[in-house]
Amino acid sequence: MLEILLLALALAADTFAVSITLGSTHQDYAKRQFLKMALLIGMYFGVAQGVMPIIGYALGSTLLGWLAEGSSWIAFLILVGLGAKMLYESRSDNGDDVRINTNHRTLLSLAIATSLDAMAAGFTLNLLAINAYLACLIIALVTGVLSILGAYIGRKSVNWLGSWAEAAGGLVLIAIGVNMVV
Score class of each variant (00 low, 15 high):
4 I>E: 00
9 L>R: 02
12 A>G: 02
13 A>V: 08
13 A>G: 07
14 D>S: 04
14 D>T: 03
16 F>L: 08
16 F>I: 01
18 V>N: 00
18 V>Y: 00
19 S>A: 10
21 T>E: 01
28 D>W: 04
30 A>M: 09
31 K>I: 04
31 K>V: 05
32 R>H: 10
32 R>Q: 11
36 K>T: 10
36 K>L: 11
38 A>Y: 00
38 A>H: 00
38 A>S: 04
38 A>Q: 00
40 L>R: 12
51 V>T: 04
53 P>G: 03
53 P>F: 03
57 Y>Q: 01
58 A>P: 01
58 A>E: 05
59 L>R: 02
61 S>F: 07
62 T>V: 09
64 L>M: 11
65 G>S: 10
65 G>D: 13
65 G>H: 07
68 A>Y: 05
69 E>F: 08
69 E>P: 04
69 E>G: 09
73 W>V: 11
74 I>K: 02
76 F>H: 00
77 L>I: 13
78 I>T: 03
79 L>H: 02
80 V>H: 04
82 L>R: 00
84 A>E: 06
85 K>W: 12
86 M>K: 02
86 M>S: 04
91 R>H: 12
93 D>E: 15
94 N>H: 15
98 V>R: 01
101 N>P: 07
104 H>L: 14
106 T>K: 05
106 T>H: 04
107 L>R: 02
109 S>I: 08
115 S>M: 08
117 D>R: 06
118 A>S: 09
118 A>T: 05
119 M>I: 10
120 A>I: 08
122 G>A: 09
124 T>I: 13
124 T>E: 14
125 L>H: 06
130 I>N: 07
132 A>W: 06
132 A>C: 11
134 L>N: 10
135 A>C: 11
137 L>C: 12
138 I>T: 13
140 A>G: 11
141 L>H: 08
143 T>K: 05
145 V>T: 13
146 L>Q: 08
148 I>Y: 08
151 A>M: 08
152 Y>C: 06
153 I>D: 06
154 G>T: 10
158 V>C: 07
160 W>I: 15
162 G>K: 14
162 G>F: 14
165 A>I: 11
168 A>K: 10
170 G>W: 07
171 L>D: 11
174 I>F: 09
174 I>G: 14
176 I>H: 06
178 V>D: 13
182 V>C: 14
182 V>W: 15
182 V>M: 15
